[in-house]
Write a protein that binds this DNA or RNA. Structure first.
Lengths: 222, 222
DNA sequence: AATTGTGAAATTGTTCACAGCA
DNA sequence: TGCTGTGAACAATTTCACAATT
């Protein structure tokens, strides 16, 4: 279990399971604030609109964390999920593009809370370079490769217009970064060993639009 | 086809198909800028890292848009997808919470481009109420229900802390709004006829974290 | 010759249902 | 008794493969 998943197990685990792990983590963090010592798969499922069986199946990929008859120990399970997700540590993050979205992300509390520390900002705008955002001086984009390397950046957030995103990402890859969170509305080309996740906010609005126009039923378990 | 999907067809269409429709729309918009008159499922798939069969299957739910031997007409297909997604019109959107993320969204170009017009802003902070953001005066949250109704708001974006989100959403529902885009990190409780989509930026970082710690292979078609 | 549209097959993901355990 | 853990059943989604069409 944990980070010691063998290759066979690891490949059985679906993207959706991992995403739900984030939800369980969130729900457990809430419960921890209260007096709750244990939680059943039923309760956990309810708080994130999933099914109890799904919760148990998801968790079972990683080990046996519960006690039959009782449920799961809240704090312990939360810690174990944090370990599985790799958020029991600090990640060094750089953000490229200090525009509307970029600026918002610098101050985004959820990132810090989960160990994602933005320690570096880049922009190509002379008026922004050298300015201070929440204690971080904005660097010139032209020094990107060198600075990413020197600062041992592990994750890069792309918050620039689509027109320049691919060009910058090529440099990010050159710097040896293996994980990219992309806010630009295009599909980035990267080598096979680089992970990219896309954050496409317009897409979610489009889904809502579709649902309303077509009277698409919202999905609910049961 | 189009908004005239019958109930049976509509229910066969999966969430993933709709999300990919957004991707096709985006890719076609790019192509339209160039001289391209037609595009094959192969080309379309390539630009969004999908498979040709998937493109054809997705589109086939809504009609026969292509020509055998030739491909799909770019502009026409783009327009048809816009119609299916319901983004061939203007949607009246209100945004609650003019903090970091809220402010960024007011200026977010992708929303406007696709017909999502933010016409109303709400906050509970006296210092913000009455101030002007991109031409919109921030309203007091206490007038929420009345103003949402009076202004015929169709979509609400929630960009407030998790602690107050549910409380506000209850009012949003009271105002008769049927679509919510939620940036607060919690699962909102709403009646069955209200659509909610969650934008969880930390979740995507957690996925990257998991992938790196566990050496999870990035998924690629083929 | 190229490429769509689509049933059928393969694969992946979810739910059931119950044995096993506290 | 209550609730987990999990194989087996089921459901959804994707891919294949090929007939149809230009």
């Amino acid at each position: 279990m944990m980070a010691d998943l063998n290759a066979e197990t690891r490949n059985r685990i679906s993207e959706s399971t991992i995403r739900r792990l984030s939800l369980y983590f969130r729900a457990l963090s809430f419960l921890e604030g209260d007096e709750h010592e244990t939680v059943s798969s039923k309760e956990l499922a309810k708080s994130e609109k999933l099914t109890p069986a799904q919760v148990r199946k998801d968790l079972s990929f990683f080990g046996s964390f519960g006690t039959r008859g009782l449920g799961y120990p809240v704090t312990e399970l939360r810690d174990k999920i944090a370990r599985i997700l790799g958020i029991d540590r600090v990640w060094r993050v750089a953000l490229i593009g200090v525009g509307n979205i970029g600026s918002a992300l610098v101050s985004y509390k959820e990132f810090i809370k989960q160990g994602f520390h933005i320690v570096k900002l880049f922009d190509n705008d002379q008026r922004k370079i050298g300015s201070n955002h929440k204690g971080i001086i904005v660097s010139d984009i032209k020094d990107l490769v060198k600075e990413l390397k020197d600062d041992s950046i592990e994750i890069v957030v792309i918050a620039v217009p689509a027109t320049v995103a691919q060009y910058l990402v090529d440099d990010v890859v050159k710097a040896g970064v293996k994980a990219i969170l992309n806010f630009a509305p295009l599909n980035l080309r990267v080598p096979d060993d680089v992970h990219v996740r896309n954050e496409n906010m317009a897409m979610e609005l489009e889904y809502l639009s579709f649902a309303m126009v077509n009277d698409h039923p919202p999905r609910r378990p049961k």
